[in-house]
Design a protein around this nucleic acid. Sequence first.
RNA 1: GGGAAGUUUCCAGAGUGGCCAAAUGGAUCAGACUGUAAAUCUGACGUCUCCGACUUCAGUAGUUCGAAUCUACUACUUCCCA
Length: 398
Amino acid sequence: MSSILKTFKERGFLKQIVAEEELDKLLHTQKIVFYIGFDPTADSLHVGHFVQLMAMRHMQLAGHTPIILIGGGTGMVGDPSGRTDMRNLMTKEVVQANCNAFQRQIAKFLSFEGENAAKMINNADWLCTLNYVDFLREIGMHFSVNKMLTAECYKSRMEKGLSFLEFNYMLMQAFDFYMLYEREGCLLQLGGDDQWSNLLAGVDLIRRKKQKVAYAMTFQLLTTSDGKKMGKTANGAIWLDANKTSPYDFYQYWRNIDDNDVEKVFKLLTFLSLEEIVQLCAFRDERMNRAKEILAYEVTKLVHGEDIANQVQQQVRAAFSNDVTNMPQVKIAKEKNNILDILIETGQAKSKSEARRVVEGGGVTIDDAKITDIHTIIAQHEFVLHKGKKVHIKVKLE
RNA sequence: GGGAAGUUUCCAGAGUGGCCAAAUGGAUCAGACUGUAAAUCUGACGUCUCCGACUUCAGUAGUUCGAAUCUACUACUUCCCA
């Protein structure tokens, strides 16, 4: 078995694959060009994309050439796969802005130099100038509506309704693969498992138009041990953009994950060797915390860089050991010195009602004094705010 | 084009004239227990000047002492017939 496929299997990436043996041989004997598409549905990538980025990196390290396909064209339509409702249609300007944001983030994961330098391509280049009739005649004729309707990815949409706009998404993605096959010699498309039908559509299209074989492989979606999508918090999704999810919160998310997910995340989202991972996950008691700390550090390092990871780790350690000089610090206006305003200004409560509840629930401590009265005024100009057992920040009034 | 059903608080989903800021479950937050874990138990979960007040149940206009619940219209969604 080729080492890359073995890696994907051992690390728990692999979900479904087209012509496994053939592809295995191909990956083993040749350096190929492959691609993953990213649709600009938001202004930042989130943890769900992270797995795909890691997979690309693994592939590049194995000598294969990655193409990052930014969905400037497909993003105009919206992928209905696995969704129960239609996406809001984005304006062209938003799509463009999101594309730019994606490019910056993805660039960190891949090398754009050397023999197998990664390439970034935007499918708007060909999708936005298509001629409708030509497209229907050349591409549309190869698709069976009957077959498309039975595709797993449309199931949930068949109950709620599927617009013709979205129904075309599969053709567009198939066409992308075909274009990359023609222009770049791209033989393989990777993606999350929710993309399986779309990937197959591309493989089919290439076979019909060129009588040539192309390959597809999907990866495990990042889920928690109880099967839910990973990356949800009170403040919404975990983003890879530091402005949307601070590196501190990002680090803490991984630091706090379920014991049962640690090994999986290590394998998928870090480059530590399997031996190291097994060793780190050997313990099922408080020693597990050491593993989680390393996990959080490694993952943060990949996304935000080593300097920031070091910095954040130091802050986290300081916060949890009550080391006042190094813990994260927030400055707020000195007029906001009552406990409710402090909670809001420091971002620990979204409304006064919420702030009130945490205080009344006994979750707030200033320095060493538990605050129980919602009217409390804090006299100090500098103090440590604790909320629950996980939030410890130094607050400065000025 | 004709007919039927629907649109509820982050999500799912009850509620069909006052007992409704709205059951229940999930998510989330806090407390207890712990290992910054899980499980479990407890509490909270529209907003505010919080023992009270205010704004909500697609939108608008009504009926009524009183509407998420009734009526009309508008928008959107689904289903059936053509």
